[in-house]
Design a protein around this nucleic acid. Sequence first.
DNA 1: GGCAAATAGTTGGACATCCAACTAACCTTC
DNA 2: GAAGGTTAGTTGGATGTCCAACTATTTGCC
Lengths: 163, 163
Amino acid sequence: MPLPFDPIDEARRNWRSNDWGAADPMAAATSITRAHQVLLHRIDAALAPFDLNFSRFEALALLHFSRNGSLPLGKVGDRLQVHPTSVTNTIDRLEADGLVRRTPHPTDRRATLAEITNRGHTTVEQAAGALADIRFGLDGMGRDDLSAVTTALTGLREDAGDF
Amino acid sequence: MPLPFDPIDEARRNWRSNDWGAADPMAAATSITRAHQVLLHRIDAALAPFDLNFSRFEALALLHFSRNGSLPLGKVGDRLQVHPTSVTNTIDRLEADGLVRRTPHPTDRRATLAEITNRGHTTVEQAAGALADIRFGLDGMGRDDLSAVTTALTGLREDAGDF
DNA sequence: GGCAAATAGTTGGACATCCAACTAACCTTC
DNA sequence: GAAGGTTAGTTGGATGTCCAACTATTTGCC
């Protein structure tokens, strides 16, 4: 099943020999894409028993750590960097499962708060344990690799305007 | 618009102070997820003028570099690590745009070859140039960051059984 | 030779994401 | 205090991915 060669190395050789340019960026971008694919698959599998996916887990963890256990939907989108429509969808699912509750904003009647329920708190704790158990799907990488990746990607996130 | 702090650093602090465990893997996985999101957006934007997305570009490049300019659909899926149904969809779009042509496999009547057309060759060359122009969306990362990421992620890809 | 098991590809359905457009509420300005 | 612009959230439509099930062919085995 595994290929007898590293497909990204092979692609880089092809780009170089055809003078397509940016062979190293191509290799890095492709590596990130593939890594994301692997991680998402492993993480979603670990979260499936809780009826969560990574997006819903992230939203739930954000509310869990928030001061009042609630945030306006817009703030959730800002922090998770997802589209307002995705927030609606995510909170819909969490609410249907009883992990979150929609509440009117006390002063701004346009806004809606997502408030984590008791079941939400216990579920997110268990789910976090499941993710810790699989090291967030990062098997195959050592401690030094982890920090190298996180550090090297910080510039990209900053360039994208995250913070 | 940008947050006044690094959201991933913040999340790591929360994980640590709540003893959730695996805070560093969490930070790495979240960084990869966010980086992928940024890259995909930038790359797709650069490819939009050619009516390509990253998946279709990858498939086209694979055929471009292949020995005969054609491969069975299954091989395409193996190399790009995508589901057979996604291959069908991807080749459908490429074929509709005249960049690829379906051809019967010469010896195995179950199989179908995807064969790149002349227009496919010229389009993929132009698209590759557009991606090189934006350094595959990796602005914000230096040369050393690129190689650090690619190297650090190799173990993960190997662990996932890629090669 | 012939039948079971494996393989190649497609279809239909579920799900997640984004965009455009919309409603409702707020805020600014005169 | 009313008009115009902005902001919060939802809906409907398009896209892309995966899974389950299906057809057609090939391969393995007796």
